[in-house]
Design a protein around this nucleic acid. Structure first.
Lengths: 211, 211
DNA sequence: CCAAAAGTGTTAGGAGTACACCCATGG
DNA sequence: CCATGGGTGTACTCCTAACACTTTTGG
């Protein structure tokens, strides 16, 4: 049987919300090809680890944090997607709340930074495509799952929650309908705490999945 | 940079409906490991083809047919999933209508046959898991897309359509509500033909996406 | 007292669900 | 004439969407 010289990598679309913007973690490439351009973080899958483990390892290397939401996205294997040779990449996406979205200091992530997805720099390889798939997946899942809470801190206001939805879906939502709907889901625990920011204090809530 | 000796395959979950049952194409393994057990068809990705092309090639080899619905499912890369070595597989699922679901005579598919998913034989590798993911994907997509029509011939009755849904979702649906709903979608073209089978002739329809 | 964001109800339309009988045909 | 599957309508509930004003606080 012929031996195939295909290399397998994982690439990560790590998303967070900062300054009311959806942002993605990108690293600046220091080597050719695409030297000087931005790219999604990623790396080779080691021989003794699963795809998920490889993705989690890369994710921890970039962010210095464990226990982050991580889900497989799609696999990309066009023969020409990497000019250096045949590389199949399994893309994952991760969601990290702003209070944990500090970047690892050391690591190969020295050049990593958060870029608003609404105003992206030029991306290397087929990474624009990968990011696009990730955003569509996130938008889809937002509608019928509770993944969105991964992008919020433990305590948040209903306005925080709504803004998160608005930023990701890129459209504005009706405040009253939104509040009625999320409260009816029975997944929010109202806290006896209020956010004292600026004007009228806003009630804080925490996420409490299906009682 | 270290060279990784990971091999990349595609595995196929090819589904059809026969005799009012959802069925999957399986091949009987003639070699170890898992000799004598059933497995999903699949094969190595060649160096000059994309993942999708590899899947389409395998699909045509098994079924002798082109232009079949084919979509990437998920990638599986546990280091122990194949006892022979490190193999990452990119799974695809395909839907083929019963009138095209004849099997290729020659090919390595000599041992291929359609098995009801409700009553499966023992499957090799992690293929039970792959099939499970495929069925869940299909059930999910059935609710918010029109993929289901891929499992029907060009002309079908509303009862055919409903049975297809019932078989896949494994639950019975209300006839009047079902008909009202699918007709309201405006994606069915009523034909001036009737199916003359047994008793009262049933009207035939064809699938006509968003006018 | 003013600016800014928090908070709150009602109505109308559409979608989903439950439910039972008559019809056309072939044997 | 009977067995079989084809075909049809209504009422109720629930979800969704549209829409505007009052409250609380800090400055």
């Amino acid at each position: 049987m012929k031996t195939h010289t295909i290399q397998v990598t994982v690439d990560l679309v790590i998303l967070t919300i900062q300054e009311q913007q959806l942002r993605v973690l990108l690293v600046k490439r220091g080597v050719r090809p695409f030297e000087g351009e931005c790219a999604l973080p990623g790396g080779f899958v080691r021989e003794d680890e699963s795809l998920e483990e490889a993705a989690a390892r890369e994710l921890e290397e970039e962010t210095g944090t464990k226990n982050i939401f991580l889900e497989q996205l799609y696999s990309f294997g066009d023969p020409k997607r990497d000019p250096r040779g045949r590389v199949v990449t399994v893309a994952y996406y991760a969601l990290i709340s702003p209070d944990r979205a500090e970047l690892a200091a050391g690591s190969d992530a020295a050049s990593a930074a958060w870029y608003p997805v609404a105003k992206l720099p030029k991306l290397a390889f087929d990474h624009p495509n990968i990011l696009d798939v990730a955003l569509n997946r996130l938008r889809g899942k937002l509608e019928y799952t509770t993944v969105g809470f991964e992008l919020l801190p433990k305590k948040f206001t209903l306005s925080d929650l709504q803004q998160m939805y608005e930023v990701i879906l890129n459209k504005s939502l009706d405040k009253r309908n939104f509040r009625r709907k999320v409260l009816a889901m029975g997944i929010l625990r109202p806290l006896k705490e209020w956010q004292q920011t600026g004007r009228k204090p806003a009630r804080l809530y925490s996420f409490a999945p299906q009682t």
